[in-house]
């Protein structure tokens, strides 16, 4: 799977309370994405465009099990690449069909606003004529992503309606 888009760059420790504030639980599902990053970067949820990519520092998605990746997906974010990613956020992202990749070195490699190309299967990240090579996404996770997340798979296997 290949992703190409404009990069938004965030720092270390972007947590799930920033991605999916508690106020979301009291709102209808369609109103939740507008609150994404409202505490740390007010207005961002209106500026981000479908197909944009999110680049971040270490420990991205630290925090709770809330479906934080859903907000990013609903805003049209095409994928997240970060220096390191919290395991629970990583799993939630794959399961909801949001591409994610751990890429040590990516925070300094990408400048905000530039066009970035990410090849999840080879681990090659291209930006401004340079390439950063990281460990690709393991095949079985790439397959869940390709199927659109875990629910389509469970439906196909007859576990859910």
């Amino acid at each position: 799977m290949k992703l190409v888009g404009r990069a938004w760059v965030f720092d270390d420790d972007i947590n799930t309370d920033l991605l999916y504030p508690a106020a979301c639980f009291r709102l209808p599902v369609e109103e939740r994405p507008a609150l994404t990053m409202s505490a740390n970067r007010p207005g961002w949820s209106r500026e981000v465009r479908p197909g944009d990519l999110l680049v971040a520092g270490t420990n991205f998605g630290t925090g709770s099990s809330r479906p934080a990746a859903d907000n990013l997906k609903a805003l049209g974010v095409a994928g997240v690449v970060a220096e390191s990613i919290n395991g629970l956020f990583f799993r939630n992202a794959i399961n909801t069909g949001l591409p994610v990749l751990e890429a040590p070195g990516v925070r300094a490699f990408v400048r905000e606003g530039t066009r970035v190309e990410i090849d999840l299967d080879t681990g090659a990240i291209r930006s401004e004529g340079r390439t950063l090579n990281v460990r690709p996404l393991p095949g079985f996770l790439a397959r869940i992503l390709a199927e659109g997340g875990i629910l389509p798979r469970l439906r196909k296997e007859g576990y859910i309606d």
Binding site: P67, L88, N95, I150
Partner: peptide, 14 residues
């Protein structure tokens, strides 16, 4: 381990 709601739906099934 915390695994999130979607994974829990999968574990409930399998």
């Amino acid at each position: 381990r915390g695994v999130g709601m979607l994974e829990v739906m999968s574990i409930l099934s399998t």
